[in-house]
Simulated assay, not measured.
Amino acid sequence: MNVKKAVQEIENDLIAFRRNMHMFPELSGEEYQTQKRIEAFLDERAIVHQRMAGTGVVATIGSGSPVIALRADIDALPIQEAIESDFKSKIDGVMHACGHDIHTAINLGVATLMKHFESELNGTVKCIFEPAEETYGGAKIMVEEGVLENPKVDAVLGLHIMPYLDAGKAEFRYGKLNASSDALKITVRGKRGHGAYPDSGVDALLISAHILTAIQSIVSRNTSPLNSVVVSFGTIEGGERPNVIAEKITMTGTLRALDQETRDKTKMLIKKIATEQATSFGGQAIVEIGDDYLPLVNDDKITRICLAVAEQTIGKENMQMKEFPSLGTESFSFFSECVPGMFYHLGTRKPGAPTTSLHDERLDPDESAIASGVELNVNMVLALMEELS
């Protein structure tokens, strides 16, 4: 099969879909029209699909094992687009500022070519279109609803556009790639008293200050300097008046870790430090820690196979290895926690263009990345089918 030629034949259709999706972005959990457009695209090509996680879609092509899944996210962000174009967002205050329209077009391209070559496939392909990646993570719901079962998925692939990389290039990493994320809330309770007579109360504000300081020792003294963990608090609220000892203080923050062991250990230490510090001052601390995004760790075997494919597809000169993992999150981790997976970054910077960031009102990705992503992903799927069969 001539993948490059097949990609060229459908490239214009994919760009047209992307531009339409860009003009009509929908926020997390509200991707109703986006879902219908994806389904219509698949229907036109006789590709079997089903709805999942409310506004998500899963397309299935081929039969038998191995089963390879590919994930694309479909939701937009509450951002006002600043770039002028013929396909600028028509929805006020909503924009595809994270490239999910590019991701969706790539996955539709993969589904199209897999259907075209279906009789030659040595296995099954699942193209997953995940809703609400930017908020509660539709991936978790899709996994709970059985997206990786019936047929059971053997490997999963995902990508994200990266505006600091030139179009035509791709970035990879073995092992740890993205951090876990957990919301933190600590409520400290003391006893109200007059500021002139501090001994008559239990100062919740003073307790909170000691807790905040002590928790940072988890990073500096309880975590290997060769590992990474972040504990950041962004809000602290409480107290009544300048001359009244605070009875209640609430602090909220975030915990980031790059592996599950460090994540679990840090949660335990946060609870221990907060409760014991509060008790030592005669107060009480109630610690609430969410169980949010998982760490994303690429599987070595799947990564090795995909790196070999990338070298053949785009050339070693267009590949780079990411030196350090990111403390940002990625809901793809819910898939790769269950089955071996590999997530990589696809360049979208236009020639000579300044570097922007994701979630930027000026994000303007090079649409040639769509064809690059389709070709890479199709070749990766074919190689994985051969290696895992």
Results as ranks from 00 to 15, higher is better:
62 G>K: 07
62 G>H: 10
66 P>F: 05
66 P>I: 08
67 V>F: 10
67 V>S: 10
68 I>K: 04
68 I>Q: 04
71 R>N: 08
72 A>W: 09
72 A>S: 15
72 A>G: 08
74 I>S: 03
76 A>V: 12
76 A>T: 13
78 P>H: 09
78 P>N: 11
78 P>E: 13
78 P>L: 09
78 P>G: 13
80 Q>K: 15
80 Q>T: 15
81 E>S: 07
81 E>K: 07
82 A>M: 14
83 I>S: 02
88 K>R: 15
88 K>A: 15
88 K>D: 02
88 K>E: 08
90 K>W: 08
91 I>T: 09
92 D>K: 15
93 G>C: 11
94 V>P: 11
95 M>Y: 13
95 M>V: 08
97 A>M: 11
98 C>T: 09
99 G>S: 12
99 G>N: 08
101 D>C: 06
102 I>K: 03
103 H>C: 08
104 T>Y: 04
104 T>N: 09
106 I>C: 04
107 N>V: 14
107 N>W: 04
108 L>C: 04
108 L>W: 03
110 V>D: 00
110 V>H: 02
111 A>M: 09
113 L>H: 06
113 L>R: 04
114 M>Y: 05
116 H>G: 02
116 H>T: 10
118 E>M: 10
121 L>P: 07
122 N>E: 12
122 N>T: 11
123 G>Y: 03
125 V>R: 00
126 K>W: 00
127 C>A: 15
129 F>P: 00
129 F>N: 00
130 E>H: 14
130 E>P: 06
131 P>D: 05
133 E>S: 01
133 E>H: 02
133 E>P: 05
134 E>S: 12
136 Y>Q: 11
137 G>A: 08
138 G>Y: 01
141 I>L: 13
141 I>D: 04
143 V>H: 01
144 E>D: 15
145 E>P: 09
146 G>T: 08
146 G>Q: 10
151 P>V: 04
153 V>M: 00
155 A>M: 07
155 A>L: 06
156 V>R: 00
157 L>Y: 03
159 L>G: 00
167 A>H: 02
168 G>A: 07
168 G>M: 13
168 G>V: 09
170 A>H: 04
172 F>C: 05
173 R>G: 06
173 R>P: 06
174 Y>V: 05
174 Y>N: 08
175 G>A: 07
176 K>P: 01
177 L>V: 12
177 L>P: 00
178 N>D: 02
179 A>T: 02
179 A>H: 00
181 S>W: 05
183 A>T: 06
183 A>R: 12
184 L>Y: 03
184 L>A: 06
185 K>P: 10
189 R>P: 01
190 G>Q: 05
